[in-house]
Design a protein around this nucleic acid. Structure first.
Lengths: 218, 218
DNA sequence: GTCTATAACCTGATAGAC
DNA sequence: GTCTATCAGGTTATAGAC
């Protein structure tokens, strides 16, 4: 690097950084290009030069955010599979590979999990289809691993309750600050290792449970 | 009622109905007053006459939506408590009283759960504070009941994991259509009774589990 | 209570100079 | 690649007639 060169990031990256944070805290529709370019300290027209439109910028933000996360998930799963013998992978290890990267990302940058949460509510169907493409074959890959780890649980049950766990994780991470404020005295997820440990115990116990409570209409 | 009177709802109610549906499907910031008044077939100025502003309309929509829900939750809990002897309430019954009204509301009107989901993502802090007020002492009330039902589980754990279950329920109900599409062949929550039954088994098994899986940093 | 008309402002997007 | 200037359209909110 040259000695006189300032380490300022390029314009397109500054736009992506600002957009990521503002989308996370204010929502996508709740954030205007004016706000983004002001925070990034670039000209308003730059966003339409480097990206084609606001929609394209949104997709770039999510791509940059989700691609390394899902790659890490896949890496952890493959590491665990090759470390364990064929078919001897535990359900606990599958859940660990699925959730560890997300909890770690949350620990490093709280904006990340907010960005994930936006997808549950932002109505844009184009974005949802795009993000589903980012997940690609990851869901199938993890479902097959879970199926081998828990052959006694029906595949449809595994599929459903792993998604359920995903929803619970996103919700509790997003609301962790509010929950700590509402119930002070004991930090519940102040360390991500502790939370992961409890999550995996909670999830596997649930997945291995069988319906017992009779529900009757009132 | 008079013979010639049409059974058309009053203007303010038509506005609330239209706003509820549009907020659910398009988001709050993603819905303009113009859209609302067009769907309600009322004049654009009526929303500022009957309600003070868009913010006040949003609060009215959530109040009308959440008040009967939480009243029903409380009723179910108190019914179960008076039916059972003092202190003999099961954790399953607490979870039933908490989630049954929500699942039933989802079954009757899919817009409802979308409206709940908006709160996780819409950035408006004023709205969040307002809705927290709607929940009022309900959380404390249910936490005390759960504590009596499971005295061996730490209160902080109960608080945390019941919120976790709430996040999972909202997520799976919101995404139930997509999940059915992604994993066809077996309906998982086609009947709310079946889902409630599985949910309560899953949740109580998780709540009663203890951490077993050792998590180590990679 | 309901309507028309309009104010004041913000939005994404683009043309064209530099 | 970066800027200024501007466009066409949408937004909430309000004033004032009926």
């Amino acid at each position: 690097m040259s000695a006189t060169e300032t380490t300022t990031k390029p314009t397109s990256e500054r736009i992506l950084d600002a957009a990521e944070g503002l989308f996370a805290t204010q929502g996508i529709r709740g954030t205007s290009l004016k706000e983004i370019t002001e925070q990034a300290e670039v000209n308003i027209a730059a966003v339409n030069y480097h990206f084609r439109s606001k929609d394209a910028l949104v997709r770039e933000v999510y791509q940059r955010c989700f691609q390394p996360l899902n790659a890490e998930r896949l890496r952890l799963l493959e590491d665990a599979e090759s470390a364990a013998g064929e078919g001897s992978l535990a359900l606990e290890q599958v859940l660990y590979a699925l959730f560890e990267p997300m909890v770690r990302a949350w620990q490093e940058n709280r904006n990340f999990i907010l960005l994930v949460g936006r997808l549950q509510s932002e109505p844009d169907p184009h974005l949802n289809v795009f993000v589903q493409g980012l997940y690609g074959s990851l869901i199938d890959r993890f479902l097959r691993a879970a199926r081998r780890a828990a052959p006694d649980v029906a595949e449809a049950q595994l599929f459903f309750w792993i998604h359920f766990l995903f929803g619970g994780v996103v919700y509790t991470l997003i609301n962790s600050q509010d929950m700590e404020r509402m119930h002070p005295g004991q930090n519940l997820i102040d360390t991500s290792d502790m939370f992961l440990q409890d999550l995996i115990s909670f999830g596997t116990a649930g997945l291995r449970s069988r319906s017992q409570f009779p529900v009757t209409r009132s």
